[in-house]
Design a protein around this nucleic acid. Structure first.
Lengths: 128, 128
DNA sequence: CGGTATCCATTCTGATACTG
DNA sequence: CAGTATCAGAATGGATACCG
């Protein structure tokens, strides 16, 4: 006889497996600019140039590349308004908004614990 | 006359500023292996080899490098037991445990929304 | 077992120039 | 304004060999 157990989280996806698609997705989300872009888009749509000015130090190339990936994943939506010059807005999709709290928590954690991390680094570097 | 306003979150740290230390910290946390290492250490201490077997596809070099960074930041603690051969355990510090829910949420999000992301990608790739 | 050091191919990224 | 194309230099990461 066979017994079937109902599991509360029946996800077959396992990022610990190198070949699971979630491994690659996690990798993509763990990108230098993803967190900042998503947090920046949290309050509402922004144009390319506005994003670039908000996220100091990002190059146009990297910003575009990051936005393209997020658009492809369905996390960000790109809207083109035909005008002269053309206007392009980026905003979070519902999927993107579901990710927002997560990346925002990451940013907030970094801000909240920066001091602790810095003093830990000093201690670490001192004893070498 | 000067009025002082008490702010609930008086963090002067701003990761949108390229020179803020949180920018670099966020960058470090957004590393390919950090999330997996922390999630793996969630349940309890693990040896180097155990971690390597758990996180399929990570090279010894990358695992060591990731662990060193996390140790330096005070997120992971490294314990050496003198024996033959030597035994090295890694475990989350209290600071690291405070970060756990965040990275776990990221991993869980990836698992929960992998299907949506994949179908979005197919749609995106189809219209090019 | 855990770790370091070295070598080397690959990838990444910023700068620059150019298009619609 | 938004974006693409190109190219050279930097950073990355894997493989390998070796140490305590």
């Amino acid at each position: 006889m066979t017994t079937t157990v109902t599991c509360p989280t029946p996800t077959p996806f396992d990022p610990f497996d190198a070949n699971c698609p979630t491994r690659q997705l996690l990798d993509e989300l763990s990108d230098k600019w993803v967190c900042l872009v998503l947090v920046a888009l949290g309050p509402g749509p922004l144009r390319h140039g506005e994003l670039k000015r908000r996220i100091l130090g990002v190059s146009q190339k990297m910003l575009t590349q990051t936005l393209r990936n997020l658009e492809r994943d369905g996390i960000v939506e790109r809207t083109i308004t035909a005008s002269v010059p053309v206007r392009v807005d980026y905003e979070l999709t519902p999927l993107g908004r579901s990710l927002m709290p997560v990346v925002d928590a990451l940013k907030t954690w970094a801000q909240a614990h920066m001091d602790e991390v810095e003093s830990s680094r000093e201690r670490y570097d001192a004893r070498v």
